[in-house]
Write a protein that binds this DNA or RNA. Structure first.
Lengths: 210, 210
DNA sequence: TAGATTGTTAATCGATTAACAATC
DNA sequence: TAGATTGTTAATCGATTAACAATC
């Protein structure tokens, strides 16, 4: 059970969780690092190292119990506690997130959305009210919010981050296509869709080089 | 000008492009690796190493010309040529992609969407026709397609990938929450939204550990 | 020219892989 | 017990950082 958990390991953890859930759904009870490695395109060594950052969840000569390991990793990922979320921006991306079934299934509960568009304000989306941006401060002072989903234009993102920070929100899932400056005690995880697509474009352009 | 371009560099390239565009829009003409590093949270050394994978785009004693470097990186990313795309799945995510302004602005042109829902089939979205899934094969044999965006449920993803491969499509931008098996000469880049959110959840749960 | 900053080589650091004793 | 596979230490590999000569 090693001490430090590197970024590389954290990036892989949700993949473990996803594969273990698929295996569990397929009725697989037990798996070795060898088999899991073939499935996930990792070496058995790496899998054992990764898992042992958190404890000895396997058994020699046997491997890992699928549902037990999935349970451990789910807990490590913090999925056992519910996360209260608000979504800033009721555009296409904000609405796609609000309606994404796994979002609520995995314990991320949206309690409000915010938008500047007066047409949208006052309506609801999947029972979630869409409130005017002006009410952001009063809302987050009245309700505990774990995560704010930023699904708004680039120009509004940085300012909104500060308003959220001042209101006590300490975690942001950012879809705005920019890197935000943020205080040290605030967590920001980016979903830079265009970055991802450009990586694909790069690989297409350089396919025949290796 | 080093030979091999590592995955780590490829992942950072779109970030360079993004920051350089912001700098260009802000009217900045020139930048040193020192300043760019502060902006992007990278060391000056790393920036110079990264850029020198592709050529000596800077000048000693001066730094880099912002728009020139942006141009080079855009070309390296393959953004100079247009990419013809189809979107499989006209649900919330598929539609969000279709309507995402930067998608077309950066040269990714959607020529068709596909869905199983008879209600949606026959309509258009931003002038793009929504076709029935059964017409996938005939469509891709009649039109050249560079990239297929997979925005459909997990259970349909793997089968659709094979249909696309058989039809000659060799690049996939995958939003389905699963890791797809694919032939070696097919490129797949995943956008695992839940993985990203779970990384945030992990960091929230382990904030006070370091 | 002097000062600044790159391009590039060398040193360091960290992550991945290999090996193997422990043990189920 | 014998066989299999983990947990963990050691070796390797690759990426990041530091250093500095080249040069604008």
């Amino acid at each position: 059970m090693a001490g430090h958990v590197s970024d590389a390991v954290i990036r892989r953890l949700p993949g473990y969780y996803r594969h273990l859930r698929e295996l569990e759904a397929a009725g697989v009870m037990q798996i070795s690092s060898q088999e899991l490695g073939e499935r996930m395109n990792l070496t058995p060594s790496q899998i054992r190292q990764d898992i042992n950052c958190f404890g000895g969840f396997g058994r020699q000569g046997y491997g890992y119990r699928v549902s037990e390991l999935k349970g451990h990793i789910g807990e490590i990922l913090g999925l056992t506690n519910e996360h209260i979320c608000i979504i800033i921006g009721a555009g296409h991306i904000g609405c796609a997130v609000a309606r994404y079934p796994s979002f609520s299934r995995e314990g991320f509960r949206t309690i409000a959305m915010f938008d500047v568009d007066k047409e949208k304000v006052g309506t609801t989306l999947e029972d979630v009210p869409i409130l005017p941006m002006e009410e952001l401060e009063s809302f987050i002072s009245a309700h505990h919010v774990d995560i704010a989903v930023l699904a708004l234009p680039r120009r509004a993102a940085q300012d909104t981050l500060h308003r959220l920070y001042d209101g006590g929100v300490r975690a942001i899932w950012n879809f705005a296509p920019t890197d935000l400056n943020h205080p040290e005690d605030m967590l920001v995880v980016n979903v830079h869709l265009m970055d991802s697509l450009q990586q694909l474009s790069y690989r297409m352009a350089h396919k025949n080089e290796n």
